[in-house]
Computed example of a mutant assay.
Amino acid sequence: MKIDSTIFGAITIDGRTYEHDVVVRLSGEVVKRKKRLSKKLYGTSHVLSKNEAKFLFEKGCDQVVIGSGQMGNVHLSPEAEAYFERKGCDVLLEPTPEAIRIFNRSRAKRVGLFHVTC
Results as ranks from 00 to 15, higher is better:
Lys2Asp: 05
Lys2His: 09
Ile3Cys: 09
Asp4Phe: 03
Ser5His: 05
Thr6Val: 15
Ile7Asn: 15
Phe8Ile: 12
Phe8Asp: 09
Phe8Arg: 15
Gly9Gln: 07
Ala10Cys: 07
Ile11Leu: 09
Ile13Ser: 02
Ile13Asp: 03
Gly15Ala: 10
Gly15Arg: 06
Arg16Asp: 03
Arg16Cys: 07
Thr17Gln: 13
Thr17Ile: 05
Tyr18Arg: 07
Glu19Met: 10
Glu19Gly: 04
Asp21Ile: 04
Val22Lys: 08
Val23Pro: 00
Val23Arg: 05
Arg25Cys: 08
Leu26His: 02
Gly28Cys: 03
Glu29Leu: 10
Val31Leu: 12
Val31Ile: 15
Lys32Val: 13
Arg33Lys: 12
Lys35Cys: 05
Lys35Arg: 15
Arg36Pro: 01
Leu37Gly: 05
Leu37Lys: 09
Leu37Ile: 10
Ser38Gln: 11
Lys39Pro: 01
Leu41Tyr: 05
Gly43Pro: 13
Thr44Lys: 07
Ser45Cys: 06
His46Met: 06
His46Phe: 02
Val47Asp: 00
Leu48Pro: 03
Lys50Tyr: 10
Asn51Trp: 13
Ala53Leu: 11
Ala53Cys: 09
Ala53Trp: 15
Ala53Asn: 07
Lys54Leu: 01
Phe55Gly: 01
Phe55Leu: 07
Leu56Trp: 09
Phe57Asp: 07
Glu58Leu: 06
Asp62Asn: 15
Asp62Ala: 02
Gln63Val: 10
Val65Asp: 02
Gly67Lys: 09
Ser68Glu: 09
Ser68Ile: 04
Gly69Glu: 01
Gly72Glu: 12
Val74Phe: 12
Glu79Ser: 10
Glu79Gln: 14
Glu79Phe: 03
Glu81Asp: 10
Ala82Asp: 14
Ala82Met: 10
Tyr83Leu: 05
Phe84Ala: 05
Phe84Trp: 06
Phe84Pro: 06
Gly88Lys: 03
Cys89Phe: 01
Cys89Arg: 02
Cys89Glu: 04
Cys89Gln: 06
Asp90Ser: 12
Asp90Val: 02
Asp90Gln: 12
Val91Gly: 05
Leu92Glu: 13
Leu92Ala: 11
Leu93Met: 14
Leu93Arg: 08
Leu93Phe: 05
Glu94Phe: 13
Glu94Asn: 11
Pro95Met: 14
Pro95Leu: 11
Pro95Tyr: 10
Thr96Glu: 12
Glu98Asn: 11
Ala99Asp: 06
Ala99Leu: 11
Ile100Phe: 03
Arg101Leu: 10
Ile102Leu: 13
Ile102Val: 15
Phe103Pro: 00
Arg105Asp: 13
Arg107Asp: 12
Arg107Gln: 12
Ala108Leu: 09
Ala108Phe: 04
Arg110Pro: 01
Val111Asp: 00
Val111His: 00
Gly112Met: 07
Leu113Ser: 15
His115Ser: 10
His115Phe: 04
His115Val: 07
Val116Asn: 05
Thr117Val: 07
Cys118Ser: 13
Cys118Phe: 10
